[in-house]
Structure formats: C-alpha cells, structure tokens
Design a binder for these strands. Structure first.
Length: 400
RNA sequence: GGAGGGGUGGCAGAGCGGUCGAAUGCGGCGGUCUCGAAAACCGUUUCGGGCCGUUAGGUCCGACGAGGGUUCAAAUCCCUCCCCCUCCGCCA
C-alpha cells in the first residue's frame, strides 16, 4: 500500500502516478475517508483517557465512568467503521507509476521497446514447440482439463537443465536458493498485492483458506513478513524454484495452442529486499541478470518498459524481456522484473532499523527462467540444445 | 487424527483484574576507566497512531498471537480462530 502520511502531506506529488494507473477515484476517496477518521480520533482518545484511573474508583466515579463507557461505545463504533473504510481504500490504491514509465502502449508492445538484442533466425517453415518437444497435451487434458501439459523425455531433461543452469548463474550472483511453499494464506496474497486486484487469477483450496501461488514472489516476499531487519542485513537476495498456478481467467481464447499459456508452470524467480535509495539500481541489475541469461543461450529478444496502465497494483515500474518465437513470428514475454518499492513491504510490515527509526524496505522481483524458455529454446534452435545446457544434463538434441 | 503444554519487548523470561508498556538477564547504543581493548561500573534501549513544534522534542491514545465478550477497569477472566512445542497414531 501507499504511505498514507505522505498521501496526506503531499497528495499532489502522488496524484499523477496513481492516476496513470487508474487509481484516481480510489485515491480521492481515501483522502476523504482519512479526514473523517482523523476527526474521530481525538474525540475517542479524550474519552479513553478519562476512563483511565489509578486505583479503585469511588461509587460516584463509577457512575460517571459508566456514562463515559456508553459515550465511548458509540464513538468507537464510528471509528471502527472509518478505519475499515480507510483500510479498504488503502488496499485499492495502486503504487504510483515511476516517472520513467511510459503511458502509451505502442502498436505491438505493452510499452516502450527499450532495445532489441540479437537477430530473429531465418528459418523456413519453422516447427513450433509441439512439433519439436514432447508435451502430451491431449493426455493432460484427459487428466486435468485444458491448459495443462505433460513434459516428457528429452523435453523434460531440457527443462530440468534449464532450471539448474539458471539457478547456478543466479546463485553465483549472490542469490540464496529457496524451495518455497506454494500454498499460502490470504494475508500473504493481500500483502503482495495480488488480492484484491487479481483474485480472479488465483486458485483457492476450498475449506482450507489457502491459495495456490501464481508466482514464488509471494512466498519470497512473505519470507520476512512482519520482521524488522537490521540495516546491515540488507540487501537480501533470494531465488526460488517452484511450480506456479494461474487460472488464466482473463485469457479466454488466447494462446490456446500447446504449452504457451497453461495453468501450471515452473519458474526460477529472483527476489530482492533493498534499502529504499538502492531500489532503482537494483531494478536495473535484475534486468541485467535476466538479459545475461537470455544472451548466454543466444535467444533473440527485446526489452520492454511496460506502460503504466499495464502495471500490476504493486509495481511502480516493470521491464519485460520478450523472446522471439519463430512459429508465432513475434516477440513474447519470457521474463518480468518489477520494482514494487515499499508497496509490498508496507503491507507485509517488512522494515529495517535506519538512522531515523524504522523504515520500510523496498522489494523487487524478477524472472530468471520459466517453462516458456523451454519453448523459446526449442523453437529458435529447432531442437538443437545450447552447449551450456548440456553441461546441466540436457540432451544435445531434443527428440520427441 | 488423538492427548497435553504454550504464544509477553531484538532474544531469553517474570507477571495472571487497577499502582504493568510491562521485573530480571542477555544483546544493542552512549559514557566512566584504559596507551588502546577486555572486564567492571553508570546511563540508555518496543512498535504504531493523533495533536503541538521549523528542528530537537513534547503530549495524549492504542498494541502482551488475532478477533470478539465480561467489567467502571483486562497481558491477567470467558469465547472463537491462528500458530508453535511434546507424546501417541498415520504417512512421502
């Protein structure tokens, strides 16, 4: 969530960035609700202080105190309602977009294309991933429904090598490897900003009050929730490997062929906790780490600075890397790196002890690799496997 | 799944209706001592919110796992939920 004190003190500074993400109305309602709440607080505080006594009261005092209790009951009810209203709106107001975030979605990208690296290969009649790898879509549909797939044989070896390779590279850069839970409680979903905005995307486990995470970002952000870290513990870098689950409720009819967009996929994720003044540098570092992975494999890609309207509630800025997919003859997202500044940290209560008391840390997340990288490798090299991946157990060539 | 025990400040741990935001120890910070350090000694040290103040800070309110309730008054009593530990059972 945003900083309510800052919103109150200098609303004009926050207004544009929030409006660009479509939160203008919620923000104005929040300011009004906050004002109402602050009108009630001193009245409640005053009554409460009258309620406080040292030692036993006289019978007359008891009568008076009973009256205070009555007055307080009514006022506290109002304050409770005001608190709830503020909380509800605070959950709705998005993290303002950073000044460097573009407004426009250009013709074929979700934002500004920052750079294009590598050449799309010229392949005559390129085969798509279903023709190159072994995925077992129909059998998976029989088992689990549409948008599920088995990854089998050489293709599975390629996928596993990819995860291990990416993990290795990222760990070498100081990220601590983690195997996280993928079922989490509601508060973790709120804390990371996926609720309420993207609730429709999340699988719920009935009767347990648990949710399947769509990304291990949730578990990695939740790792330190409610903690006050020491300044010299920062920065903290984690990388997780996990399965991820998405309902793809808003994607009806899109990418229905093959493994491109499925309900369950694997991902190696990077996550950083940093000092506020360092988060923009860290964001660039995450992007650089992603680019070095794509480059090492030799994937042709481009970097997109995502437009404000396309950003999640939590992200102040996001870069996607899109790899070239020969069968689709276009660039498609394979990574995403977001700076959520203090938005998640504030909701999750993650702070550090600074020079001026406690402050919220900044958190960032970025993709290392996902199953989509398997498709990108298959399609760009038409079944041949880059040497580096063979060192991690992949076959030299994927046979179906 | 069954039976017990427990959740209090950075950590350990007392308190079990008003004098408790909370003893004590450890840790942290500042100081004395010292050529310097250790030890010892002295002081200090939870978090959030409202208001006042340019700042330093002051002041009031809230928080003892979470949420309800009883009471003039709850860390302390009652209820619900969550979490942790021990033993038994089951199990990858």
């Amino acid at each position: 969530m945003i900083d309510l004190k800052a919103a109150r003190a200098e609303p004009d500074r926050l207004r544009p960035g929030i409006a660009r993400k479509g939160g203008a109305d919620a923000f104005e309602e929040l300011l009004a609700a906050d004002e109402q709440r602050r009108e009630l607080i001193p009245r409640v505080d005053e009554l409460r202080s009258r309620q406080k006594l040292k030692g036993k009261p006289t019978p007359e005092q008891v009568e008076e105190l009973k009256q205070v209790k009555e007055d307080l009951r009514a006022l506290e009810e109002q304050l409770g309602a005001a608190d709830e209203r503020v909380d509800e709106l605070l959950r709705k107001v998005p993290n303002p977009a950073h000044d460097s975030v573009p407004d426009e979605v250009t013709d074929d990208a979700e934002g500004d294309v920052v750079r294009i690296v590598g050449e799309p290969p010229s392949i005559e009649h390129p085969k798509d991933h279903l023709e190159l790898g072994r995925f077992e879509m129909e059998r998976a549909a029989r088992l689990s429904g549409s948008r599920f797939g088995y990854v089998v044989g050489d293709t599975a070896r390629l996928a596993l090598a990819l995860y291990r390779w990416a993990l290795d590279r990222v760990v070498a850069q100081g990220f601590t490897p983690v195997l996280p839970p993928v079922l989490v409680r509601e508060e973790a979903m709120y804390g990371t900003g996926f609720f309420p905005a993207e609730r429709f995307e999340i699988y719920e486990v009935a009767d347990e009050g648990l949710y399947l995470t769509g990304t291990s970002e949730v578990a990695l952000a939740g790792l330190h929730m409610t903690e006050i870290l020491d300044r010299d513990e920062l920065p903290l870098h984690y990388t997780a490997f996990s399965a991820n689950f998405r309902r793809e409720a808003g994607a009806a009819g899109r990418d229905t062929r093959g493994m491109f967009r499925v309900h369950q996929f694997n991902k190696v994720e990077m996550f950083s906790y940093v000092l506020p003044e360092e988060s923009w540098d860290e964001h660039e570092r995450l992007l650089a780490a992603e680019e070095s992975l794509a480059s090492e494999l030799g994937l042709p890609y481009r970097v997109v600075n995502i437009a404000a309207a396309e950003l999640s509630a939590a992200a102040a800025k996001r870069y996607d890397i899109e790899a070239w997919f020969p069968s689709q003859e276009r660039y498609r997202e394979i990574t995403s790196a977001s700076n959520t500044t203090d938005y998640q940290a504030r909701r999750l209560g993650i702070r550090y002890r600074g020079d001026r008391g406690t402050e919220h840390v900044h958190t960032l997340n970025g993709t290392a690799v996902t199953d989509r990288w398997v498709l990108a490798v298959l399609e760009n090299f038409q079944g041949e496997v880059p040497d580096v991946l063979q060192e991690f157990g992949a076959p030299a060539r994927v046979e179906r």
